[in-house]
Computed example of a mutant assay.
Amino acid sequence: MIKHQLNFKILQRIKSSRKFRPECCSPTKRKKSIEVMAPQVRLQGVDDKLQKLLDTNMDEAPARRRAREAFKDIQLNIDHILFKTPTDGLKIKESYEVNSRGLEIFSKSWLPETSQPKAILCYCHGYGDTCTFFFEGIARKLASYGYGVFAMDYPGFGLSEGLHCYIPSFEMLVDDVIEHFSKVKEQPEFNALPSFLFGQSMGGAVALKIHLKQPSGWNGAILVAPMCRIADDISPPWLLAQVLIGVAKFLPKQKLVPQKNLAEAAFKDLKKREMTAYNVVAYKDKPRLQTAVEMLRTTQEIESRLEEVSLPLLILHGEADIVTDPSVSKALYEKASSSDKKLILYEDAYHSLLEGEPDEMIVQVFNDIISWLNEHSSKFTAR
């Protein structure tokens, strides 16, 4: 009886959404409904012309690309510690390439300009995110320490082609990432270098899935607040989750999964939390049904296969994280068959360790990452 009531409520919400309004509605009425639904987020220092770009529907890549291009200089000049690393001595490249599935993928690289990298880091970004905003600062910092950093936006994320934040298959997404990073590693100037995966949040799940598909393909992984299980405070109740899984079979692209404000949950520093609004191509709506189902299935699979993780690991997690569950990072550390593994838990820290904490915590986390990388890249280079 309860299940039927929940199904009825969800179907009522579907019928009332603007995408499901009957085609017989007059153009005027339909236009009004769209205006009511449009997000109105006014950013400081943004004129009306840029604001129009911000309010545009970002479902498809061309709109996201236009918005990012218009906001690029504004983004990189916000007062955040990540953007204070100079670009002098760095070689930075952006590109688009059509992959084997016919999707145009955006990628970016950051390299030391005058020396060979110590190692290469292949970055897997988090849910709804991109490699063109906060990660820009992270990558600059890593490259300034002599590392080659490579990143891509998954299909449907950031500047890559595809419906915004829609994951029809997590396996397919992981295969797309493997395809891209395999091409990077095969380049003559990089193929003899140690290679490390670097995953944040959902990107941690992507990195672990890559490792499980390529057990001997990488020299190590850095996992920051990895999504091995979604925290109970964020995930919907079990019964509602089962209903949503059922509805996803018929309406996979619909934005119906209830969710708390992720910036509020992930960013501890209030000033930095406000800065998330400037990440204009990040996905900020309710999760799409199939995306949520794929993430749930993936975390369940990873949690059941922790013993198969065998590569050198650095796992970093905030103890106060209510987005991904730090207890599963502890379980990963304990159960992984890796002989070389390290877990660092940061007291009172939230989910976004490298973006949303006070400056001193961000510096500490960076130092822990650089220290581990220096130790492990020299170890493999010396062989």
Rank of each mutant, 00 (worst) to 15 (best):
I2M: 13
K3V: 14
Q5F: 08
K9W: 13
I10S: 10
R13H: 14
S16W: 06
S17Q: 01
R18I: 14
S33R: 10
V36K: 13
M37W: 08
R42P: 11
Q44N: 15
G45M: 12
G45D: 06
K49I: 13
L50S: 10
Q51M: 15
D59N: 14
A61I: 01
A61M: 10
A63M: 12
R64I: 10
R65Y: 06
R65N: 07
A67D: 05
A67V: 03
E69M: 13
A70R: 11
F71H: 04
F71T: 02
K72C: 10
I78H: 08
D79W: 10
D79H: 15
L90Y: 12
E94K: 09
S95L: 14
S95A: 15
V98P: 04
G102T: 15
G102Y: 11
I105S: 00
F106T: 00
L111Y: 04
Y123L: 13
H125S: 13
Y127I: 12
F134L: 13
G137D: 09
G137N: 05
K141Q: 13
A143L: 01
S144N: 08
F150P: 00
A151Y: 04
M152G: 03
P155H: 06
S160I: 02
L163N: 09
I167A: 08
I167R: 01
P168Q: 11
E171L: 03
V174D: 01
V174G: 00
D175P: 04
H180V: 08
F181S: 00
V184Q: 06
P188S: 14
F196W: 08
F198T: 00
S201V: 04
A205F: 03
L212M: 14
L212P: 01
S216I: 10
G217S: 06
N219A: 13
A221H: 02
L223H: 04
P226Y: 06
R229N: 07
I230W: 00
D232H: 09
S235L: 02
K249M: 09
P252K: 05
K253G: 03
K253F: 01
K253A: 01
K255M: 08
K260W: 13
A263W: 09
A265M: 14
K268A: 06
D269P: 09
E274F: 12
E274P: 09
N279W: 07
V280I: 15
Y283Q: 04
D285R: 12
K286N: 13
Q290K: 14
T291K: 03
T291I: 01
A292D: 03
A292C: 09
A292Q: 01
M295N: 01
L296R: 03
T298S: 13
E301C: 06
E301A: 08
I302K: 02
E303A: 11
S304G: 05
L306I: 05
L306Q: 03
L306E: 02
V309E: 00
L311N: 01
P312I: 05
L313D: 00
L313V: 04
G318A: 02
P326F: 04
P326D: 08
S327V: 07
S329F: 03
K330C: 07
Y333M: 08
S337H: 07
S337W: 02
I344M: 11
I344W: 04
A349C: 15
P358C: 05
M361R: 08
M361Q: 14
Q364W: 11
Q364V: 04
V365T: 10
E375F: 12
F380H: 09
T381P: 07
R383K: 12
